[in-house]
Design a protein around this nucleic acid. Structure first.
Length: 196
DNA sequence: ATCAGGATTGGCT
DNA sequence: GCCAATCCTGATT
């Protein structure tokens, strides 16, 4: 089933952990989807969060309603996708860092130009390329086509590797500010995380 | 008007 | 392990 607004309105760290094992689905010219196996939380008052210095044109989606996507471009090359969480206006979000490919694997192979499923979506820039998520999805809701997040029971008989199971908590990757906060979470045992 | 730098990735040493 | 690619935002002049 599709996750509802009430799911996203909760405490951002709780939402981040509950997002593990859920299915991120994108359908425009094709349907591709992957299990969320790694995330990072970005909070209000968090120097590493894009929202830290207040609302701007770039980060406005982070201050919008929860349950919507915040997509941004990094290093002029890659796009990364976040799920907006908490209370509207708080500027909190969860960055999706890695997926285990689930639906449309051949399509992901084509988009990524490689054959190894462990490398399709094991990174924030990789997964957006694999699923075809681009900047024009910034600010769109996650309740409908083309982009949605579904609960872990969405594919009968199928579960991501390591779910349900232990969640590992570590510091976030690639940041310089607030680098010591333990706000990264991933499924223990998954071979699809960006790094252990 | 100008400029430094970034929630990354892939290729080369 | 190191480094270039690439471009737009936000801060500064």
């Amino acid at each position: 089933m599709i996750l509802s607004p009430a799911f996203y309105e909760r405490d951002t760290v709780t939402v981040a952990k509950d997002l593990l094992g859920c299915l991120l689905v994108h359908q425009e010219e094709a349907t591709t989807a992957g299990w969320i196996v790694e995330v990072e939380a970005y909070l209000q008052g968090d120097p590493a969060a894009h929202s830290y210095r207040g609302e701007t044109k770039r980060n406005s989606a982070m201050f919008g309603p929860p349950g919507h996507a915040y997509v941004y471009r990094i290093y002029g090359l890659h796009s990364c996708v976040n799920v907006v969480t908490g209370q509207e206006g708080a500027g909190e979000a969860v960055l999706v860092r890695a997926l285990e490919p689930a639906i449309g694997i051949d399509r992901m192979q084509a988009r990524r130009g490689m054959n190894d499923p462990a490398s399709f979506a094991s990174g924030p820039g990789k997964l957006t390329q694999a699923l075809g998520i681009t900047m024009d999805l910034n600010g769109t809701s996650l309740y409908d086509v083309p982009l949605q997040v579904r609960s872990p029971d969405s594919l009968p008989g199928r579960r991501p590797e390591g779910f349900p199971g232990e969640i590992v908590q570590t510091t976030r990757i690639g940041i310089t500010k607030a680098a010591d906060l333990p706000l990264r979470f991933y499924l223990k045992g998954s071979q699809y995380v960006s790094r252990r």
